[in-house]
């Protein structure tokens, strides 16, 4: 009996291990297209994810509402002060904008901020701690393909890595596999913004040249060199600068402007004419 079992089980286990190693190896590199089975399973799960998302969002909003009410008085004073400051700033910015438009026209610049945007709802997240991805409710049937940039009004979110008919998976900029070209807004120095800080939710900006200077409080924006993100989209603010022990270089810790734990809606940057 044991012999017979072993005769069948051992080759079966070897076959299973070989198949698993094969599929792991095949899917270890980023793929632009996902298999039909993956697409079908994701589309099947998306209504359940949407339901959980709605219920979870409801409770999260209730908690946020209670917290908001607590500090309403203090917040009101702060906001009134801020309104006065912002009104003055808006006045100055209007002048800059008019000047900028005039200069753009003069230099025949293309307005790179004018992109078609597709609104998508966040319905899912990566199931484990090792990947930082979100699932949105727009897919191939809406014209979404891998490589498209995903943003919010606060800043950049990530890139579409694959999509099924009705859903797309977005690799967040905080993921270990994400690297985005950025520049320091104040100096214009180029940096490479990488994820991988896991639960801390921060990014690391590494300088691309020896002369790069970054200080706490500097704002990092997209450089526009990667051709994924439009130029000058906000990424985050430098909160610390860490020097490397055996290196003349340094790395700046960047706090993203986007709160990835509270993402509800995102904007997918579509090619011109598709929205």
């Amino acid at each position: 009996m044991l012999d017979r079992l072993l005769r069948w089980k051992v080759p079966l286990i070897i076959l299973l291990v070989l198949i698993l190693v094969g599929t792991i190896h095949y899917t270890s590199v980023p793929r632009r297209e996902i298999s039909k089975l993956e697409g079908l399973w994701r589309d099947m799960l998306s209504p359940f994810q949407w339901t959980v998302s709605k219920v979870g969002g409801f409770f999260q909003n209730q908690v946020a509402e209670i917290n908001r009410w607590r500090g309403l008085k203090e917040r009101n004073d702060e906001l009134e002060e801020r309104v006065v400051q912002l009104e003055a700033e808006v006045f100055t910015l209007r002048n800059y904008r008019r000047e900028n438009e005039w200069l753009r026209e003069a230099l025949d610049f293309r307005d790179e901020g004018n992109h078609a945007l597709l609104v998508a709802e966040v319905i899912g997240r990566s199931p484990s701690n090792w990947e930082s991805t979100i699932v949105v409710n727009k897919g191939q049937s809406h014209g979404v393909v891998s490589g498209m940039a995903v943003v919010t009004n606060a800043g950049i979110v990530g890139t579409v890595i694959n999509s099924s008919s009705y859903t797309s998976t977005v690799l967040l900029i905080v993921d270990a596999q994400s690297a985005t070209g950025g520049l320091v807004q104040s100096s214009g120095d180029l940096v490479l913004v990488e994820g991988g800080q896991m639960d801390q939710g921060t990014l690391l900006a590494r300088p691309l040249s020896r002369d790069t200077s970054v200080e706490v409080g500097d704002v990092i924006v997209t450089s526009g060199l990667s051709r994924i993100y439009p130029k000058n989209l906000p990424i985050g603010e430098v909160v610390a600068v860490e020097s490397r022990q055996y290196d003349l270089s340094f790395a700046a810790v960047v706090q993203p402007f986007v709160d990835f734990t509270r993402l509800e809606y995102v904007l997918i940057v579509m090619p011109q004419g598709e929205s």
Partner: peptide
């Protein structure tokens, strides 16, 4: 779960 993650398919299964 592997099919949702889309990378290293088979690793969670194993």
């Amino acid at each position: 779960q592997d099919l949702i993650v889309g990378q290293f398919i088979g690793l969670y299964a194993g």
